[in-house]
Each structure stands twice: as structure tokens, then as C-alpha cells.
Amino acid sequence: MTQHVKLTINGRPYEADVPSRLLLVHFIREVAGLTGTHIGCDTTSCGACTVLVNGTPAKSCTLFAVQTDGANISTVEGLEQGGTLHPIQEGFYEEHGLQCGFCTPGMMMTSIAFLQENPDPTDDEIRHAISGNLCRCTGYMQIVKAVQYAARKMRDEQATPNTADSSAATATEAEVIR
């Protein structure tokens, strides 16, 4: 059976008649054409498909798009704003938090939601937070450093607000994610 589904992804509306059995990750990749969200295991284990559903990390290979009708979805494509990397992207870049990069979008989405709740985490807390995201390359050391980098930068930005985002349009979209 098909059903009408309307989602806001990275601040932009998408709607389509889709089969009920369409998984959220396939809506994101095939209907919205946003292929930054990856499919790794397809069995709810690896977290490569992690996106934020109304701000909460979700394995998008284990939700039907119809379940999230009306939701705000954030994916990796929404992180960079007007040529400026999100602190988490900068962190992965600066600290070499990736090798092949397959796990990276999921790692970053999980980390962003985590840092919102815990802006000043210990390394152990980061490891716990990303325990649903698997990386087969890095051994996690650099990823933890990357998240710490982002945590520092986001704390600094909090202390001195309104430096990066200038245009009103990007500010609303950034609010969804930051």
C-alpha cells in the first residue's frame, strides 16, 4: 500500500506517495536524493544510517518512513552552512577521525545529539555514546578526539555567540542541528 509522507529534511520539505514498507533510509537516499546517509549492515547494528528524527538519533534502516511522517530529519548534508564546516566536521577533519569515511555521517549525527546533552564529556562518556556506531578503520581513538575537538569548539561558540552564521536563512536551518 502507498501512503503520503511529508518530511522536513535539513529544513527543506520533501513529500511523496511511498510504499508503507519504504524504510526511512531509502526515503532519504532515493526520494530526497541525499546519499550522505549510508547503509552498512542493514540489520540495526552498525549505525552508518544514523540520522536525527526530531533531534533524536535513529537507525534509519529500522524505521519506516511512514512512522516518521511530519518529522524533522537532520542528515549529514545539513551540517555545513554556507561553506563553513560544522564543528563536528571540522573535528573529524582536524583530528583524522576517519579513514574510509563510511561510518562518519552516522558517527557525526550521533555525536551532535550527544554533545547537546553533554557539552563537556569525558572520553568514556563519548565512547559510551557512540557504542551503537561501528567503525572498521580507525580504532575509535581519533573519533573520540574528533568529538572532543567539536565539544571544545561548540563550548567556545556558546561563550561567544553569533560569530559564524550571518544570513537569516541558514540560521534557521542551523538551529535544527546545533
Binding site: T44, G47, P57, A58, T62, L63, T110, G132
Partner: peptide, 9 residues
Amino acid sequence: VADPIVRNF
């Protein structure tokens, strides 16, 4: 139970 992302749902 499972991992932190699964536990969200």
C-alpha cells in the same frame, strides 16, 4: 539493552 541509538526507540 541493545545500544544507545536502538534504546531511543
